[in-house]
Computed example of a mutant assay.
Amino acid sequence: MKLKVIKSVRTNNFNDDLLLHKITKLWERASNDLANQVVTIYGVYHNYESDYKGDYSLSIAIEDNNSEPLLELPNHTKYEIFKVDKGEELGVINTWRKIWEREDAGILARAYSYDFEKYYPEGEIEIYIALK
């Protein structure tokens, strides 16, 4: 899958005091750039330092076959897909917590290549976790 990166940031879930500020600002800037567009938006997690406790990059991207791809997700990757409860105010955060719990329990073997959140125009959200 070829994606055009709108904005990116580098951060850490546990050691970056500006984590929420960085991610909030990233989404705000990307939303401004994508205003009035009805597209599926991707939050792509990549360039992992180690596991979910290490540094990583988060890029906001869209599918764009008309321009040079700035980020290409490998087609051969197997993913486990987690549906986010969009009725929950913290649905995305709670889904990530479940993913980390499954990993810590040894029942989710993550590849730490490219993971992504997929935001559909109609409001559905899915999180794709790359598997070993």
Rank of each mutant, 00 (worst) to 15 (best):
M1E: 02
L3E: 10
L3S: 04
L3M: 04
K4Y: 04
I6K: 01
I6N: 04
K7M: 09
K7W: 04
K7Y: 10
S8D: 11
R10I: 12
T11L: 01
N12G: 02
N13V: 02
F14W: 04
F14C: 04
N15G: 07
D17V: 08
L18C: 03
L19A: 06
L20R: 14
K22M: 05
L26V: 13
L26Q: 05
W27D: 12
E28Q: 15
A30Q: 11
N32W: 07
D33V: 10
L34N: 08
L34S: 09
L34R: 05
A35T: 14
N36T: 15
T40M: 04
I41P: 09
I41H: 09
Y42L: 05
G43M: 08
G43S: 11
V44Q: 02
Y45R: 00
H46T: 14
H46P: 09
N47W: 03
N47H: 13
S50L: 07
S50P: 09
D51K: 08
G54R: 01
G54D: 03
D55L: 11
S57P: 02
I60N: 02
A61R: 02
E63Q: 13
D64K: 01
N66L: 13
S67D: 06
L73I: 15
P74S: 13
N75G: 09
N75D: 11
N75Q: 10
H76L: 04
T77Q: 07
T77I: 15
T77N: 05
Y79H: 12
F82D: 14
K83R: 14
K83V: 11
V84I: 06
D85S: 08
D85E: 11
D85L: 03
K86P: 00
G87T: 07
L90S: 11
L90E: 13
G91N: 01
V92S: 02
I93G: 00
I93N: 03
N94W: 02
K98E: 14
K98G: 10
E101Y: 10
E103K: 13
D104P: 10
A105D: 15
G106P: 11
G106T: 15
A109Q: 12
A109R: 09
A111F: 05
A111L: 14
Y112M: 00
Y112K: 00
Y112E: 00
D115Q: 00
D115W: 00
F116K: 04
E117S: 03
K118E: 11
Y120Q: 14
Y120F: 14
P121W: 00
G123T: 00
E124G: 06
E124Y: 06
E126R: 05
E126W: 07
I127N: 06
I129P: 05
A130Q: 05
L131E: 08
L131D: 08
K132R: 14
